[in-house]
Amino acid sequence: MAKQTPVLVCSPHSPRSKEHIVFSDDTTDVRNVHAGNREGILLKIYRYLDSFQPDIVHIFQNPNCLYYLENLKGAFPKAKWVLDFRTQINSEDKKHVRTLRKRFFMAHLMADHIFSQSIHTIGSSLPLRLKPFRELPIGLDVEAFPAREKTESELRRFLFVGLIAKQRKLEVLIDAFNKYAVSADSEATLDLIGGGDALEELRNRQSILGTNSVRFIGPLSQSELGQRMSQYDAGIAYVPGGAYQWAPSLKSLEYSAAGLSVFASATKGHRDYQKRFGFDFELFPNTEDGLVNALVHARNSKNWSTSIARNKEAVLRFDWKEIIAKDLVPVYEKILKR
């Protein structure tokens, strides 16, 4: 978006956070509005907005979005306000869920427009809404993932990219791949790229097994990831069920752009993308045997060239240039004219 018009990004980033910045762009003005409390964050945001004088303020769903709208909208009467729901509520605390949904409901009444990744994402956060929304899908820079020139006849080098977190239950993926390597292909390897609170625990788990089938690379910058991805034969888009059941998988799109064969958890989100956008994933249930069987089946019988071509065509819909031109800018222009 910053290639078309000035963009200001305000985001609280605590210096004590263990997050890694994997992508930065010098053309975009990014301001850290971290403070000790939400009042301090609000004051910093106000000062930056006052200097920037925005036409549109695009707020991503967060527990304080209602607080920001209530305290900022009146200060910038010429601006339009957009509320964007990117994630489902992932909490088993029913009281907490009710509190968030109440806040989101009140916030959506104050917004000039609503976006969401999908009907299922917004359904989690805003089951009752009085305004329509427009789907704004997850996106990627397709050009950042140079495609592999050819498909190998055998799949040997596998890849997983994502958050290495305890709630992702990646031990199922790791145990399944180790089982596959022992029983079907001793030369097969799986690299996990990413960081999170389960990284060291899973490294220790693999070390005890004493095999080199699974390797932990850690976090990489987005540019390095794009260049490195073409070295692999296949990507595994492992997504746990439960609250993630409908979550669209960015990693499956990145694998598709890079020309990798794609194995994907048989979640509703992956099935939805296959049905609506024409992807061709090798789906597997989230069990050890489920993934092992899928890998064995693909090794013995699947011709991947047609599948890879379909996925490379389907992923073009998710290129950021396409999303901005067809989904974002037309809405911005429409609400500015109101």
Rank of each mutant, 00 (worst) to 15 (best):
F85M: 07
V239I: 14
G36V: 06
Q61V: 09
N303P: 01
R338P: 01
Q61P: 05
K80D: 00
G196M: 03
T5Y: 09
P15S: 14
D84Q: 08
G242Y: 06
S11M: 12
A184K: 13
K102N: 12
A298N: 03
V7I: 14
D55Q: 14
W304F: 11
V262M: 05
V214Y: 01
Y48R: 12
L155W: 00
K3F: 09
V97F: 05
P77L: 09
L72W: 04
E92G: 11
E224I: 13
L190D: 01
A111T: 09
D191T: 13
D112K: 15
K102S: 11
S252G: 08
Q231C: 12
S51H: 10
I21H: 13
L140T: 02
V161D: 00
I323C: 08
P240W: 03
N37K: 11
I174G: 00
R157C: 05
W246Y: 11
K44V: 03
K3S: 14
F145C: 05
F277Q: 04
I89V: 15
K44N: 03
L295F: 05
S230P: 04
Y180F: 13
F318I: 09
H297N: 07
R98A: 10
E333G: 04
P219G: 08
Y48T: 08
P137M: 04
I323V: 15
G241I: 04
N64V: 09
S213A: 13
A243N: 06
F216I: 05
R16T: 15
T287S: 14
P285E: 04
G290K: 09
A188H: 00
S124D: 02
R276M: 08
I193W: 00
A237V: 08
K334P: 01
G278L: 09
T189V: 11
I164A: 06
I138M: 10
L291H: 02
L173C: 05
A325Q: 12
D175F: 07
H113Q: 13
T151S: 11
P132A: 13
V22A: 10
V30D: 00
Y238N: 02
D29E: 11
A79C: 11
K3H: 14
I138D: 03
V214I: 12
L291C: 06
S91M: 09
G36R: 09
T287Y: 07
P240R: 10
P285M: 07
